[in-house]
Amino acid sequence: MTDIPFDARAHYVEMTRRKRMYGGIMLAVFVALMVSGFMLADARNAGGFWAGLPNIFGFPADVIADTAPKVDQLPGHLVTYFPALTETLNIAAASTIIGAALGFILSLLSTRGMARWPRLIPVFRRIMDVMRAVPEIVIALILIFVLGGGPVPAMIAIAFHTSGALGKLFSEVNENADLKPIEGLASVGATWGQRMWLGVVPQVAPNYFSYALLRFEINIRASAILGFVGAGGIGYELKNAMSWGQGRFDEAAAIFILLFLTIVVFDQISSHVRNRLAHEGAH
């Protein structure tokens, strides 16, 4: 390099320009990807986007047209499908509980300072990664083949995924926990189980609960969608109601309403509780 006096202003302008250029290039690549992706998806779709766009309100209109004359039967349908809704909620709740319990154990086993077998930490982390990556539908469909249709395959499938997902979040919580109580307990000869239950759990419980609640919200949706592929609950009833075909969409309308209200209500409750927990934690 020759001896040029350092020009701060020119340097700054140059840097900004380069930054802008990179930003611009990235934006252009992104836009190109979105547009070409959209065109590709459109081409591979059975019906085109622009051709289908006018029909987007066709189905809701059909459903409303079918339901309107029989609106007096709607409360009856809501009552009829309530047990199926309960099943969906039970699947979601049970799988969240089981998944949280397994996730808790996995998270302890994969957190430094708490692990029962510190050498196996990477192994348990990998296990959680794989558990998280398996979509629920895969396990559900295989289990349906072996166990038959019904809520149990869905419950196991969602619990499996949930343990991986919560395990990761829990272990992040564990990492922020204070290790002193554990050392204290160890000094008085507590077993690993006692150290975890008495030393870790009280510290992390509020955060765990908050994450589990969020997961419960997600799992309600998941259990509804798994029902649609044959695993019981309201999704299964929805599939049947849809197959009645045009003219008999009033039952589907009842299920739509039930599902919508359930999701909204549980979303609101859970976000309210989580906000309160976060607030208490801040004090």
Partner: peptide, 22 residues
């Protein structure tokens, strides 16, 4: 959010047919 991907999927596949766009 409340309508959920399941119902959106059913609704949209009626308009656009099966495929990645839906």
């Amino acid at each position: 959010r409340g309508v959920d991907a399941l119902i959106w999927t059913i609704l949209l596949s009626r308009a656009f047919g099966p495929g990645p766009m839906t």
